[in-house]
Structures are given as structure tokens and as C-alpha cells.
Design a binder for these strands. Structure first.
Length: 118
DNA sequence: CTCATGACTTCGG
DNA sequence: ACCGAAGCCATGA
């Protein structure tokens, strides 16, 4: 523990706990994993997953409630939006470059703590 | 060592 | 509510 590999493993473990049709944030996963201030690395861990991974990476969004842009012409964002809508999450396109937004008050999942492993 | 970069977050204006 | 700046930390050039 105490390294990025550990944070990566916990990120996947926690992501699997997010209920179907709900979402949480990079920062919250970082805190639950015991690595506050490592939200960017949570995003990095999800980035490494293959597109067809069983880890529900689509349920992780930014604290602003939008699907984080990827510098890939919006392809990743589109895939994430599709996967979310597929499980009943309403995603709205904000005006201009506002991004794809999820109502975090309606779909947010923010437990104080979680049981890892076990 | 310094700089830039990122699926980030928070704070001010 | 919308931005931009600042804070954040590993990684690679």
C-alpha cells in the first residue's frame, strides 16, 4: 500500500461498489481509498481500463457533475454518456462547451466509507 | 532539476 | 452560475 498501484487497485474495487444507475466523483473515490488529493490519479487509473472492462468506469464523473473531457474529440465522453443512459441515468448537454451533465443530487452516491476486500 | 501535462478540486471574483 | 487561478501529485521530456 501507499503507492499508485494500491490506489489503482482500490479505485477499481470501489468503482465496482457504485450502484447501477448511480454516480460518484474521482475525489470521493480517492478519499474512500485513503488517498485524499489523488483525484487526478483515480482518473488516470480509469483511463488505463480497456473499453470493454467490467469495471463500471462510466459511473465516475467530476465534482462539477459533468463527464470529464478527454482530449480525444469527445469520443470517450460519448461512450460514457451512452453507457450511463443505458442504465437509466439522465445526461443533459449544457449550452456551448458546458459539457455533458449529470444531476449529482439525483444520482450521486457518496458513502462515508466502504468495506474493501473482505 | 525545471517544465509541462492530466478522465481533478477548491476558492475567488 | 460561470471562469480563471491556484493547489494538487505522479510522470515523462
Amino acid at each position: 500500500m501507499g503507492d499508485i498501484a494500491d490506489l489503482t487497485a482500490k479505485t477499481y474495487e470501489i468503482a465496482r461498489l457504485i450502484p447501477h444507475g448511480r454516480v460518484t466523483t474521482y475525489g470521493h473515490i480517492a478519499r474512500l481509498a485513503g488517498y485524499p488529493n489523488y483525484s487526478r490519479h483515480v482518473g488516470n487509473a480509469l483511463k488505463m481500463l480497456p473499453p470493454d472492462s467490467t469495471v463500471p468506469w462510466q459511473r465516475v464523473i467530476s465534482s462539477k457533475g459533468i463527464i470529464s473531457p478527454r482530449g480525444d474529440q469527445g469520443l470517450g465522453v460519448a461512450r460514457q454518456r451512452d453507457r450511463l443512459e443505458q442504465e437509466g441515468v439522465v445526461v443533459t448537454t449544457l449550452a456551448g462547451a458546458g459539457g455533458e451533465k449529470v444531476d449529482i443530487r439525483a444520482y450521486g452516491w457518496f458513502p462515508e466509507n466502504v468495506e474493501l476486500d473482505g
